[in-house]
Design a protein around this nucleic acid. Structure first.
Length: 424
RNA sequence: GGAGAGGUGGCCGAGUCGGCUGAAGGCAACCGCCUGCUAAGCGGUUGUAGGGGCUUAAACCUCUACCCAGGGUUCGAAUCCCUGCCUCUCCGCCA
């Protein structure tokens, strides 16, 4: 959510953001309502001041046993007028809020302008492996080694749900532990564990709602949503709180399952592990002071990259264009791992700075050491990493001519083996 | 799932039959004073948001709102009523 005063004073910037992020919002209507609201408030406040004075007088008269019925009758009309104005203000504010929550965050000036085609590759790491045999896609390697079972997953829950068996299940569990250990021990994050279902309000807080309701699993009986990412519960952990400035930044890492209906994405990119409805992810979330948030974004990106570097998986980093960024983000980097079996890059992480956009919605502030005047924190998050595509990258990059997969050095303590072979 | 109790400022805690209660009292913090040092003591200050004024801006002035949240009753609500959320106690159920 943007600050109303900011919108008032930077209407063209906001207009551009709405256009870039394809969010048609009636900004002129909003400004009109803003004027109307302020007029009504002025009038109501005046009447309330009058009422307060009269109330005091009535109280005094009653105490002195005088007849106050004349005053009371006169104030009745004022009370009714105030009620009418308050109702009007409430209605205007509700309409304004409805518009406000649909206004996207303003992209940072350093982001390339345009749609997905304008995304800028800012880094490539590692060497794309060359194979002197015919490479296989993970959907052949996985089942052949008995690691993943697509058919039985679908039988349980429908298409694009999966089941892991044996070393496949252990690989999943090992990767989670490996990533969390790395972020906690090397990067200084604190591990948290949170619920996988949350209230509607939380989805508004981080900005998934109102836009993405169709993409989420919803438990109607309790009006709870299955989380699409740990970002939602972890960022909302501190809603309505004021941090002590000296305690910032606060860094969390969390493993959670993630649930996405992926409505409307059928047909493309849905084979194998590329796009599944339930997947595991290790997430990093930061609460920081505004002046440090862009440095924190770079280090967050570095922490996510470190996972791939430690595993030895080649990847590239994209700085997303204004039109390809999510609703709430001000700046976003995507990390894409190379998948030789598919012959393409796969997004395994998305690292974003939301500035104060989410903090405003959740009312998360901090008290600077010096001024004592509370300000909104900046929030950031990044995947570190999403599991299924990391599994794809491991299976496809480290496959051998014999059909086995060499386990990256860093994962061996977690898996207990150095190679994945059939029948394990 | 059933029954009950409760949610007041940074913290603790008082608010009687609705009427100078933004809110007693205590603690904490900050600023003075005092003081070989420390401690104690004395005086003062300390919430947030929204309007309006003034200003380059900040400071400042003024009004309004806020005693979990949202409605309602009333001339007037922290105080009465309804709904929601949360916490606690007891019973039931249970991995």
């Amino acid at each position: 959510m943007l600050d109303l005063q900011f919108i008032r004073e930077n209407i063209e910037t906001v207009r551009n953001a709405c256009r870039d992020k394809r969010a048609p919002v009636d900004l002129d209507g909003l400004l009109g309502m803003d004027r109307e609201r302020r007029e009504a408030i002025q009038k109501a406040d005046q009447l309330k001041a009058e009422r307060n004075r009269a109330s005091e007088e009535i109280a005094r008269m009653k105490k002195e046993k005088q007849d106050a019925s004349g005053r009371i009758a006169a104030m009745k009309a004022v009370g009714d007028e105030i009620k009418g104005l308050d109702e009007r203000i409430r209605a205007i504010e509700a309409s304004m809020r409805e518009l406000l929550i649909h206004i996207p965050n303003i992209p940072h000036a350093s982001c390339p302008a345009g749609g997905p085609e304008a995304n800028r590759v800012v880094k490539e790491w590692g060497t794309i492996p060359e194979f002197d045999f015919k490479v296989q896609p993970h959907w052949d390697i996985g089942p052949a080694l008995g690691l993943v079972d697509f058919d039985r997953g679908s039988r349980l829950s429908g298409s694009n749900f999966i089941a892991y068996f044996g070393m496949g299940a252990r690989l999943e569990r090992g990767l989670i532990n490996f990533m969390i250990d790395l972020h906690v021990q090397k990067h200084g994050y604190r591990e948290v564990w949170v619920p996988s279902v949350v209230r509607r309000e939380m989805m508004f807080g981080t900005g998934q709602l109102p836009k993405l309701e169709e993409d989420m699993y919803h438990c109607g009986k309790d009006d709870l949503f299955l989380i699409p990412t740990a970002e939602v519960p972890v960022t909302n952990l501190h809603r309505e709180e004021t941090f002590d400035g000296a305690k910032l930044p606060v860094l969390y890492t969390a493993y959670t399952p993630c649930f996405r209906r992926e409505a409307g994405s059928y047909g493309s990119d849905t084979r194998g592990l590329v796009r599944v409805h339930q997947f595991d992810k290790v997430e990093m979330v930061k609460f920081v002071k505004p002046e440090t948030s862009y440095d924190e974004l770079e280090s967050l990106l570095g922490n996510a990259e470190d996972v791939l570097q430690t595993l030895g998986i080649p990847y590239r980093v994209l700085c997303l264009a204004t039109g390809d960024m999510s609703f709430a983000a001000a700046k976003c980097y995507d990390i894409e791992a190379w998948a030789p079996g598919l012959g393409r890059w796969l997004e395994v992480s998305s690292c974003s700075n939301f500035e104060d956009f989410q903090a405003r919605r959740m009312n998360i502030r901090y008290r600077p050491e010096k001024s004592g005047k509370t300000e909104y924190v900046h929030t950031l998050n990044g995947s570190g990493l999403a599991l299924p595509r990391t599994v794809i990258a491991i299976l496809e990059n480290f496959q051998t001519e014999e059909g086995t997969v060499v386990v990256p050095e860093a994962l061996r303590p977690y898996l207990g083996v150095s190679e994945l072979k059939p029948g394990m």
